[in-house]
Design a protein around this nucleic acid. Structure first.
Length: 265
DNA sequence: CTCAGTGTTCAGTG
DNA sequence: TCACTGAACACTGA
């Protein structure tokens, strides 16, 4: 489920598993879709023998800082995740990259739908794709007034603009729907039509939802029962929120959008 | 068997 | 050039 909170959770787990350790063995599946810039073989050679010294994240991308550049920059796509485990028998299905540290700690990236990527960058923040991102929705979220300025002139539906990673990086489909529900804004409103009063509410909702989801380690069983999140999956006809409101499903900006007509104006 | 899916990227339009 | 739209990508599971 890779939006910002999921990516941040994965980054923290991988960092906890590998920081300070040397990567003694690296296996990369020969998959040119995932390893789209340099071949898998090159990536594994550049990682092998390196020590992990830290990590970073912006939007839905995260990277490992190594004792020598370039560094690996990961994107999970629609279906990616990382797993940490202790023996070869536990290597997960659909693995694309496996890193084994000197103490036998193993970390693997999986990517069943193959829309994720691994790219090597000398300076991740300064180079595409990370350099093309807008404000990080967690670490660099503009205040309500700045958000209002950011949306000025944007005639697309607010839902579409929230998904635009060059504006705000890290918001994906479920977070966009959640924050619009919590700030009581219709997803099809033109972004430029939102007054400050509403961009203030939107900003507060973005901060609250992302902070909570990160604190919950992206474990949705720990999300508040009042969130729309729990009622969006499966597009069930007749779905209702914890408040008893009817949930409607529309396509906005090419994406399934769950929202509550009476509540979102 | 068919369809929808938590994301990006590209071609085409205005 | 830019903002925007819609389709494509690839695969799993309901």
């Amino acid at each position: 489920m890779p939006e910002l909170p999921e990516v941040e959770t994965v980054r923290r787990r991988v960092q906890h598993a590998l920081k300070g350790k040397r990567l003694v063995t690296v296996r990369a599946e020969d998959d040119a879709l995932i390893f789209r810039d340099a071949p898998a073989r090159t990536v594994s050679r550049q990682l092998r023998g390196r020590r992990v010294v830290g990590s970073g994240r912006k939007g839905k991308y995260f990277w490992l800082a190594l004792d020598r550049r370039p560094w690996p920059v990961f994107h999970l796509g629609m279906s990616g995740w990382f797993y940490c485990y202790g023996s070869a028998a536990d290597r997960p299905r659909h693995w694309k990259l496996e890193m084994i540290a000197e103490d036998e700690t193993r970390v693997a990236m999986v990517n069943p739908r193959r829309l994720g990527s691994v790219r090597m960058r000398s300076d991740p923040v300064a180079e595409p794709p990370v350099s093309e991102l807008g404000y990080d929705a967690a670490d660099d979220l503009p205040d309500g007034a700045a958000l209002h300025r950011l949306l000025a002139g944007r005639k697309a539906p607010i839902k579409s603009v929230l998904l635009d990673q060059s504006v705000l990086a890290g918001v994906g489909n479920w977070i966009a729907d959640e924050v619009l529900y919590q700030s009581r804004i219709r997803p099809d409103r033109r972004a430029c039509d939102l007054p400050c009063r509403e961009t203030n509410r939107l900003q507060t909702a973005i901060r609250r939802v992302i902070d909570h989801a990160v604190a919950a380690e992206a474990d949705d069983t720990r999300f508040p029962r009042t969130w729309l999140f729990h009622h969006r999956w499966g597009r069930r006809q007749g779905a209702t929120t914890a408040r008893g409101e009817a949930v409607v499903f529309d396509t906005i900006g090419g994406r399934t959008t769950a929202w509550v007509p009476g509540r979102q104006l």
